[in-house]
Amino acid sequence: MKSMIVAVAIALSSQPCITTAQPSPHAIADEQRQSVQRFTSRFLKSFEDLDLDAFMDCFAPDASVFFPIPEPPDRFDGKEAIREHFALVFSSIRKSSDAKKPPYHHLPPERLAIVMLSENAALVTFELENKERIARRTLVVVRSPNGWLIKHLHASNTQVQR
């Protein structure tokens, strides 16, 4: 019996020790933040291209939006209401753009900030600036089985102070 225990101990000690490295919570948070940033870039690219289908794919079914002035002051609830209003916005931009094909305008986000609220939710803020105004945007995004989706978009504009 003693020799069997010794044999088992020797056999076990000769096996390579297998460990799996666990990513640190900091590394996980960084990956989540980067994932949200990639999502935000895809969202903005679809807006630059005025690709309404790709743009709307970024919204949760029960999303809500506050549009900036001069748009209606009401909150738009649900993907269909949001889609209908953005269709008007996209049409107006397309008509006023000199571009005949995508991208119809360029929207580099400035002062982009991403705050992870949990593993499945983030707050994204950024500004889009042109000669006349600073467009301030806040997104509340949530993780779905298919990736990040906008749960709420709040948009406001302010004049550039020069």
Rank of each mutant, 00 (worst) to 15 (best):
M4A: 09
I5L: 14
A7H: 01
A7C: 06
V8W: 04
A9T: 06
I10F: 09
L12G: 15
L12H: 07
S13V: 07
S14Y: 04
S14T: 11
Q15A: 10
P16A: 13
C17A: 12
C17Y: 05
T19R: 11
T20M: 13
Q22L: 12
P23M: 13
S24A: 12
P25Q: 13
H26V: 13
A27K: 10
A27L: 13
I28P: 05
D30A: 11
E31Y: 10
R33N: 01
Q34A: 14
S35L: 08
R38Q: 14
R38E: 14
F39H: 05
S41F: 04
S41D: 08
K45I: 07
K45P: 01
S46P: 01
S46K: 03
L50T: 02
D51I: 01
D53Y: 11
M56L: 15
A60N: 06
A63F: 08
S64M: 10
V65M: 14
P68H: 13
P68V: 08
I69F: 10
P72F: 04
P72I: 08
F76N: 06
G78V: 04
K79N: 00
E80I: 13
I82P: 01
R83H: 11
E84V: 08
L88G: 15
V89Q: 14
V89K: 12
V89F: 15
F90W: 11
F90Q: 07
F90L: 12
S91H: 02
I93Q: 08
I93F: 03
R94L: 05
K95H: 04
S96F: 02
S96V: 04
S97Q: 09
D98S: 15
A99N: 13
K101I: 06
K101S: 15
P103W: 03
P103D: 05
H106C: 04
P108R: 08
P108A: 13
P108M: 11
P109R: 07
E110M: 11
A113W: 01
V115H: 00
M116N: 06
M116D: 05
S118A: 15
A121N: 04
A121R: 02
A122E: 00
A122S: 06
V124K: 00
T125K: 08
T125S: 09
N130F: 03
K131E: 14
E132Y: 05
E132I: 04
R133E: 08
I134E: 02
R136Y: 05
R136T: 03
R137S: 11
T138G: 03
L139F: 15
L139M: 12
L139E: 08
V141G: 00
V141E: 00
P145L: 07
P145M: 04
P145C: 05
N146T: 09
N146P: 00
W148Q: 14
W148L: 10
L149S: 10
L149G: 02
H152L: 10
H154M: 12
N157I: 10
N157L: 03
Q159F: 07
Q159A: 08
V160Y: 01
Q161R: 07
R162Y: 07
